[in-house]
Amino acid sequence: MSRPRAFDEESVLDNAMNIFWSKGFESTSVQDLVNETGLNRASMYASFGDKKALFLRVLDHYSLKISTKRFADLREIEDGRKAIEKTFRDTAKTGCKEGRHKGCLIVNSGMELAPHDPETAAIAHQAFRRVEDMFVAALSRGIAHGSISSDKNVRALARFFAGSIQGVQLMSRRGADQETLEDYTETILAALN
């Protein structure tokens, strides 16, 4: 009979997510994870496997917790144009909030690991495709609503927006100031005209 876990799994994943998000996979040591999560090495390995296995769990956790919230407006605002505008402006605003400059964990991880790690590359690709599909749906609603011209190539524009939102997140990660992020965002949104 196995003993019940003496820790809150979501809290452990949140703490591991924060350290991976700020330091990246390669720069995060097992000791960093032990310090950040409060688990000892044996518990961490028994519960989550090695550092890579924990990292993959963290990416799933991030996708469910942060990305779902970040892109909620793309799914929920009826007028697709307003949904896209709000998503970009909020991303630019959040990028500088409280000096975070963290960007997006999946984008950061894709840049760091995807060239040599097929598992991370697949997760990053799937995340990009989900975001692209959310932009397709928002653009389609905007066309139906009449706020976006029907002559737009919806899939091409969705790909542009999915790549551009990553650009906003990467600029945030490198420390771009609020004015720069806002200028960049407004230039991207001009594609809706």
Score class of each variant (00 low, 15 high):
191 A>Y: 04
90 D>N: 12
113 L>K: 00
149 S>P: 00
107 V>T: 03
94 T>S: 07
163 G>K: 04
85 E>V: 03
109 S>N: 04
185 T>F: 01
163 G>E: 13
153 N>A: 04
108 N>M: 13
169 Q>P: 00
10 E>H: 15
148 I>G: 10
37 T>S: 05
16 A>F: 05
120 T>V: 15
136 V>R: 04
21 W>A: 05
21 W>L: 09
112 E>C: 07
124 A>M: 07
190 A>K: 13
105 L>P: 15
68 T>C: 13
9 E>G: 14
121 A>K: 11
58 V>N: 01
129 R>C: 15
112 E>N: 07
96 C>Y: 01
121 A>H: 15
112 E>W: 08
5 R>D: 12
110 G>W: 03
98 E>Y: 14
114 A>V: 07
95 G>Y: 07
7 F>A: 14
87 T>G: 03
181 L>Y: 04
138 A>F: 01
61 H>V: 00
164 S>W: 05
125 H>E: 11
43 S>F: 05
137 A>K: 09
137 A>T: 10
146 G>D: 05
161 F>Q: 00
171 M>H: 07
102 K>P: 03
107 V>Q: 02
80 G>C: 05
183 D>P: 11
151 D>A: 14
46 A>S: 15
96 C>E: 01
179 E>I: 09
103 G>R: 00
115 P>K: 09
75 R>V: 12
90 D>L: 11
